[in-house]
């Protein structure tokens, strides 16, 4: 701080034009001190944001998830030729360990993932939710799929697929994190119903 005020005004400006808010007037004028204070405040704030984001790296989360396909409600071919399935899911998860002091919210979603002869990867989000706080991060939900499960084509009969629980951690500031738990070994019925 002292060096900021007493430092050579002219030199400081040549070194970092535009960054020191170098619109100051005389060396000890109000304008110059206000400028130094503002520069200092912005620097400290930026540093604190960066450090808050860095502390997220020390958190080693151990989330768990379990999903059961409770029922296939219906399963049919649309007039345009795409398969569509409606299912009821039991989802339980414990994502409490994802929360740190820099966590604003956790976005969690369940996706069906499978491969077809045409597509090397199909990812279809079936359900999602926003968890605002740690208290809500351990949950159990019984729901039918929130988004339609429609294939690009007619490949779903007897199709084996993974259900993957993804989460995206939105920080109060800084870097966003994402990870997932893959649950393999689900299979759709052989016949439309």
């Amino acid at each position: 701080m002292t060096t900021l005020i007493l430092g050579d005004n002219y030199n400081a400006k040549m070194v970092s034009p535009g960054f020191s808010f170098s619109l100051c007037l005389n060396m000890h004028s109000f304008g110059y001190r206000a400028n130094a204070l503002l520069t200092f405040a912005v620097t400290i704030l930026a540093l604190m944001c960066a450090m808050a984001s860095l502390t997220d790296n020390f958190n080693a989360p151990t989330p768990t998830a379990h999903v059961q396909v409770f029922n296939i409600n219906w399963f049919q071919k649309q007039p345009n030729g795409n398969d569509e399935v409606s299912m009821t899911l039991n989802i339980s998860a414990d994502l409490q360990s994802l929360f740190t002091w820099n966590t604003k919210q956790v976005f969690v979603f369940l996706a069906a993932e499978y491969e077809t002869y045409k597509n090397s990867l199909n990812q279809i989000s079936l359900w999602d939710g926003i968890i605002p706080s740690k208290e809500h991060a351990k949950f159990w939900i019984h729901t039918s799929n929130k988004y339609r499960f429609i294939d690009q084509g007619s490949n779903l009969r007897g199709k084996e697929y993974n259900l993957t629980m993804h989460w995206h951690v939105m920080p109060k500031t800084g870097k966003m994190f994402a990870d997932k738990i893959v649950m393999p070994g689900y299979r759709l019925p052989e016949e439309y119903r």
């Binding site: 976005f107 979603f109 002869y117 045409k118 597509n119 090397s120 990867l121 199909n122 990812q123 279809i124 989000s125 999602d128 988004y147 690009q152």
Partner: peptide
């Protein structure tokens, strides 16, 4: 916005 569906082609 957020991506909710992905279909990646083989060919």
């Amino acid at each position: 916005h957020r991506v909710i569906q992905v279909h990646e082609r083989q060919d």
